[in-house]
Nucleic acid binder design. Structure first.
Lengths: 215, 215, 215, 215
DNA sequence: GATGAATGAGTTTTCATTCAT
DNA sequence: AATGAATGAAAACTCATTCAT
């Protein structure tokens, strides 16, 4: 628990695929930004810290990103990509939309327990970068629609359901990351979310606490 | 709709009750801070701006508040108190816990429509000041327990329910304040929240869209 | 050792001698200033702290002293007075000028051991207030001349001797107050000073380490 | 006498040895700080004054020194190094430890006469920066031990002797810099110090007033 | 004589960004 | 492509002092 190993953002490029130098530096910079952002918070991170962490100078950072906002944005894209990539493998094992939605929520909530600083980064980026919110919303919307189509979810307003799923998950992440919550909190928040989507309480409870493939 | 009239924070002191000067200035400062914070956002507000808006010098601000965090905190307390005071009158007309919870959510969501900058301020303060979050959580917990006691809500975990109510409401506020949502969004988010608490969908829909006493 | 009891600066006024209120407040202020100055250092002490410590408001402080410099000056005078008063009783028991000079140096050096913050205050005031330096120099000059007259000291230049006595004593105080010195340091500095004044080494050593009436 | 030429801190870099820019600016800054510190005193100097004097902006100052304390410290190191460098050439001409100690004291005391503001800077820095005091103490200790080894000085306690040499010299510097003293004061303080170290009075007087290689 | 709210110039420090090398 | 010194506007906060009550 709470081993605080940040997910490896940048898989070492597959052997043989030597990236051009510019791209290599860019990835270094993003990896460094993620490390520092998640440690100190985005607002409290100064540009030179990113440069230091990446082992380059500040000039190089500005050579790749026009501004701090742009680097945050690049980090957001990287996180979103990573999340998508990590979620894919497990998904094939999940049969129902309910299970997929549950796995999605539990993933984020579980992340907040195992890596609070990573959760903090996600919350930070979500608060700053509207594009990131949009991407995440897109992910959730896809799963939501699947469940609706399959008749597992009954939802009056898709937009309202998205606000609920995303808002509740983030609120849960925040509180879990603060270390205030029991270990069962992730499952309980997930179950409550499922109920809001029309999943019968007993099933919601069962699916949410079932062992699920996480990241 | 978007009339942007900020709720009057400072009721004009009842005639005859001249406040001591220190208290008068303090209220001026808090009122000024609320005005500027909601216009620019807390982070983007500099202390001298508050001083200017209050018609005093920067020294006076620091005479009353030791730091920016302290003035944010004072603003948070004022907002929480205002919300409580505004909510009280309508509450007596509401018979069920369901109605009270619905009114609570709708109030905040409606605020985001009628006064986006006020909503922005609340979201800002909630993100910054843990005490404010705690206070709000306390408000919601009270209503939640009422509904549970009356058998209207069925909830596995109170903490999870709170995260859901608060998270979903805030997410809804944010999106409504951005002007992206249909006018019905407030009612729909509210209904979805009620379903998560175990209120039957039809009833949830009906209560959430019923005309409710707001602020 | 190092019990850090500050010498009582203001003896309670002898019974029956009720001081006028203005004078009473003034003494309170000086006593408060001494307390705070010796705790925090003169430069780091803000005027309102003095007012607080004296249990009055800042206005009252300025009612009695035109500026911070003036309060430092008043503190200097009080310290000088106190030193003179404390030194007098013991002096009658001391027969030679050598003994008197030794007692003088040991008093200050001993003070640095038993009350570092009091020593710090003296060094602070000496660095700031030229009048205080002058007064102290006067005290030392008197004893020096006594010893010269009695043929115990042989001194080419009185001014040089004064610089040496005062400089060496203050340097010793500083280092003792920092807690870096052995307990014998006070006696050894004193003996070295006496040698500079022409006292034979053995006698210097003996007198300096003899039990002497301190404050 | 009071020609107030500050010793050239920064020897013009030997031709051909262009320093890297960062180092050049750093030296400019230290030189500027020395100029302003010695004119106004360290405490009364604001960081922007240093920037102005060096012809750079305040940002550049903080680019090189993290805080005011750090620049004071850099100045202290520079002064100590300058002193050591200036003292070296003359030392070879001095045969005895007595002469070397005398030259050392006279150098500082003479400096106070020829350049009061330079003396003021040294006293200021000594009062603020403990590392500087330590360095100076080290210089004096070296010469003291030489004299002791050679049997010229007889000293009970090295620490006491150091306090005396340093304290008396600084007190002398202060008074000389204030312009209150006769021109002979430097020699007389020096002679008195030598007596404290066990040098016979006549010899002390003679060595101290002998023309000595100063800076 | 005491109060204490208000003043406001002044201080240190930060940091995103530029640009000559 | 990388460097990294320099920028300079702006921020938070301090504190001796004044003056109306």
């Amino acid at each position: 628990m709470n081993m605080e190993r940040l997910p490896d953002i940048l898989q070492p490029t597959p052997a043989g695929t030597r990236l051009p130098k510019r791209e290599r530096t860019r990835r270094q910079l993003i990896a460094a930004a993620i490390k520092i952002f998640s440690a100190r918070g985005v607002a409290a991170t100064a540009m030179p810290e990113i440069a230091d962490a990446a082992g380059v100078t500040i000039g190089t950072v500005y050579n790749h990103f026009r501004s701090k906002a742009e680097i945050v944005s690049a980090v957001a894209v990287t996180i979103a990509e990573t999340i998508r990539a990590r979620s894919a493998p497990g998904r094939s094992q999940l049969q129902s939309g309910t299970e997929q939605m549950a796995a999605g929520c539990r993933r984020y909530l579980g992340l907040a327990a195992s890596s609070p600083s990573w959760a903090r980064l996600i919350l930070d980026v979500a608060a700053i970068d509207p594009a990131f919110r949009k991407t995440i919303t897109g992910f959730v919307a896809t799963e939501l629609r699947k469940g609706v189509k399959a008749g597992e979810f009954t939802v009056d307003s898709e937009a309202a359901a998205l606000d609920l799923v995303i808002g509740a998950t983030m609120e849960g992440m925040r509180n879990i990351a603060l270390g205030k919550m029991r270990r069962t909190h992730a499952a309980q928040v997930t179950a409550t979310i499922l109920r809001a989507l029309g999943v019968p309480p007993a099933q919601a409870r069962e699916v949410a606490s079932r062992p699920l493939p996480l990241f």
